[in-house]
Design a protein around this nucleic acid. Sequence first.
RNA 1: AGUUCAAUGGUGUAAUGGUAGCACAACAGUUUUUGGUUCUGUUUGUCUUGGUUCGAAUCCAGGUUGAACUACCA
Length: 555
Amino acid sequence: MSEERSLNFIEEIIEKDLANGTHNGRVHTRFPPEPNGYLHIGHAKSICLNFGLAKKYNGKCNLRFDDTNPVTEDTEYVDSIMNDVRWLGFEWDELHYTSDYFTQLHDFAVDLIRKGLAYVDDSSAEEIAAMKGNIDRPGTNSPYRDRSVDENLELFAAMRAGKYADGEKVLRAKIDMGHPNLLLRDPIIYRIKHAHHHRTGDTWCIYPMYDFAHGQSDSIEEITHSICTLEFIHHRPLYDWCIEKLGIFPSRQYEFARLNLNYTVMSKRKLLQLVNEKHVSGWDDPRMPTISGMRRRGYTPEAIRKFAETIGVAKRENLIDIGLLEFCVREHLNKVALRRMAVLDPIKLIITNYPEGQTETLNAENNPEDENGGHREISFSNTLWIEREDFMENPPPKYFRLGKGLKVRLKHAYIVECEDYKTDENGNVTEVYCKYFPESKSGSDTSGIKVKGTMHWLDVATAKEAEIRLYDRLFKVENPAAEEGDFKDYINADSLTVIPKAYIEPALAEATEADRFQFLRIGYFALDKDSTSDKVVFNKTVGLKDSWAKEQKKG
RNA sequence: AGUUCAAUGGUGUAAUGGUAGCACAACAGUUUUUGGUUCUGUUUGUCUUGGUUCGAAUCCAGGUUGAACUACCA
């Protein structure tokens, strides 16, 4: 059904498993976010991968909240994550929370103690860190490492019963303090936290660590292919160790390279800082690389899914050009966005030979890319708004817009020729005077006049006002996280431009947040949630390709 | 420094021992009542040194470069 396309390395693994009859041909993945922040475009890559694989191989994909740290997690994030996954176009087969497994996880820990593979350590965090050794020096055994099984059982039960304060004791796996992989030097698997959990409340005061929760949760759900990002590659031996020692369902972990986009940051910690320190208006600020930010800005799920497919999946570190994401957004919006006219920086155009007070209604197509897109009516008169940059007093060659003696077509209307203009005391152009050619009406042009340029415009009498917000990249450098010093030093101070009073077609006043528009010759726009009945606000999603701007840059 | 992973045009990603392809970007045209869109064409690449082989981007060895790992975070 789909065109020939090569497999990524994970698909190859799956197809090999399928061919070998591993798990009886069953494919089951999961997307396991921690509910401690909003999802971003990097998560979108992972979501598309995990849910996409399940769909492709007729399998299942779970959504599982990895909520083992009560102090950072919250239901606000749970709700936003579910909303974002659905908005992207995916539905989970099973919904789980790691916290639902707390009892089983606790029993796994007891099992490990019984097998002599875990012990309670009374050392402080500092002492444990000191005994850990480092990259080129082996660690040393804890003095508590050889406690008896019975003593460990008793102590762990006391930990669970709340007999100790936070940090007083931990449960550690007994592996090898000399192991070159630091994660295998007797990792902590349970810690004491007298904290309220967003789902289990005060039932527990001990919580499992990631490494003692994630793999077992995969195993409990009989996940066949547990896909995560490269930084977890060192955790895999521990993931496998737990499964092997516990003798539970053998889920397998595979790692791929996370998405990096230039001119932005992608870590939840950094995004949280931008929000908390008010560098942006919130998690859904249209400049944020979050799903909610992109949604608010006007990106579509189709565009994001296409992007995820285009960038591929591999193990090589990457830094993807934001231009590719924008290309995917334009590509989709070009097909679906309704064409409308808007003037962002207005000056008046007065048609001197068009009768004062006369109005006519013109018919304009909604989308030239869509035959069934229909038409709308727009009004025309002798006084119009046009874009300031569409007129020049001294136009250079190849300028296909207005200037004294130059002719252009007004989109869907007539051809006009500029005869004069007026400036204010500062020399700024305020009005442009043109004559129009009555026989050049769009659709019934018998004038025989050929023009190079077509401009957008608005009838002053019927145009409505709107606030328009323009966005630029949030950072001035390609990779702020890799730069010297604080990443926030590289924030682009001009990333937001607000145009308080622009003009739009009357029909646009009725827009909803679900609509997508192309403002002719400017770019794609979507209604912002800040809109009220008196004031509509539009966000610029992304600009149109502008080959004139490029031409000018060449000088 | 130890361990692990990776290295293909400017950016991504294919080629699974047999013609280095695709997308974006760039450039030149084409089309166009959006300087949008469409269509066509062009430029640019296998980290390095050896080895195996009739044949290596692919396999092997050494080197180089980059990344990750030393939270009671995930």
